[in-house]
Amino acid sequence: MSGPNVDAVMTAVDTLLAGALDAEQMPIAIEQLRQLFDGSKACFARVGPNMKSGDAIGTNADEALERRCFGDLAQDFAVMADVVRAIPLGDVYRDRDVFGENGLRSSRMWQEWMAPQDMYGGIACRLLEAGQSFWFFDVQRGRTQDAFDAADCALLERLFPVLRRVSEISRQVGHLRMQRDEARGALDTLALGIVIVDRDMRIVYANEGADEILADPEAAIGLRQGRLFARAAIDQRQLKQLVEGALRAAADPLAEQRCSMIVQGGGDRVHPLSACVMPAVAASALVEPHSRVMIALRPLQMATDLIACARQLFDLTDTEAKFASALAGGMSLAEAAEVQGVRISTARTHLARIFQKTDTRQQSQLVSLLRSAALPLRSR
Rank of each mutant, 00 (worst) to 15 (best):
A210C: 11
C309R: 10
A23V: 12
K322P: 00
L254W: 05
R202W: 00
V84A: 12
I169S: 00
D216S: 00
A250W: 02
S170N: 04
A321N: 03
A246P: 01
L370C: 07
D200K: 07
M26F: 14
A219F: 04
R258G: 12
A249S: 07
L16K: 15
A86T: 10
Q363K: 05
Q264K: 13
S167F: 02
M26D: 10
C43I: 05
A275G: 13
G71W: 01
Q365N: 11
I262R: 15
R177E: 14
L176W: 13
L17G: 13
L351N: 02
G131A: 06
E256Y: 10
F99H: 11
R348Y: 09
Y93K: 12
G174C: 05
L313E: 04
V281F: 08
P49N: 02
R224E: 15
R158E: 07
F355R: 01
R184W: 03
E63A: 10
I203L: 01
P88D: 12
M80R: 09
N50A: 13
D315P: 06
V83S: 10
E320G: 06
A130C: 04
I221C: 06
S133W: 07
L316R: 08
A233Y: 03
G266M: 07
P272F: 09
Y205K: 10
Y93S: 15
T189C: 08
V243W: 01
W135S: 07
D22M: 09
M178V: 09
E168R: 00
S332F: 05
P299R: 12
V270N: 01
D38W: 12
S133M: 04
P272T: 14
R202A: 03
A86K: 09
R94E: 15
